[in-house]
Amino acid sequence: MKRTLLLILLPFFVFACLSYIVSIRICDYAMAAQPEKPLHFNHKSHGEYLQRLGAGDCELCHGYYDNGRFMGTPAIGTCKSCHNGTTAAEKAFFKGYNDTDRPWGSYAKQPDLVYFSHIAVLKNTKQARCSSCHGDKKNSMTTKKTDRIMGKMPMGQCMDCHDALRISNKCLVCHD
């Protein structure tokens, strides 16, 4: 009797396990959990150096356009504004790295139905910090996912903040 029961239940068990694995993979793919990072950028050393120069702000590289749109991941031109390419290592890097041939993936990609505006969240009267969503990125040494504290940004996380700061939680505030 026990063996029959086992034989009946085994396919269901296997199917459940398989579908779990497949769905996890699909979720990872859809939410870009393993994006391509061509090089290991050290946020900590850059931040500390820039802070010594008196410009230790995220906005120096991750800034806004004139119309308020977030620039996102900086292009190679932003690096070139400081690294003028005099040393041999820099020369080799700029020669081998282009913006176009190696796309820089992002963990923090919002789905299509979200109109997320960085400037509206950060330059408000109730100011949030970069770290409130991105975790302690300032002190991260690599671009691995383990450095991130906050994980993906689910809608509940946005709504909790909006609730706490008494900002409207209507759908139209973020969705389109």
């Binding site: 356009y65 119309n67 308020g68 109109y115 505006s117 330059k123 408000n124 139209l172």
Partner: peptide, 21 residues
């Protein structure tokens, strides 16, 4: 139709960039 509310969001971002909160 949502009265093009994404244009409102766009204009809001532009206003914040211009210093209007």
């Amino acid at each position: 139709c949502t009265f093009c509310s994404h244009i409102w969001k766009r204009e809001r971002d532009r206003a914040i960039a211009g210093g209007e909160t």
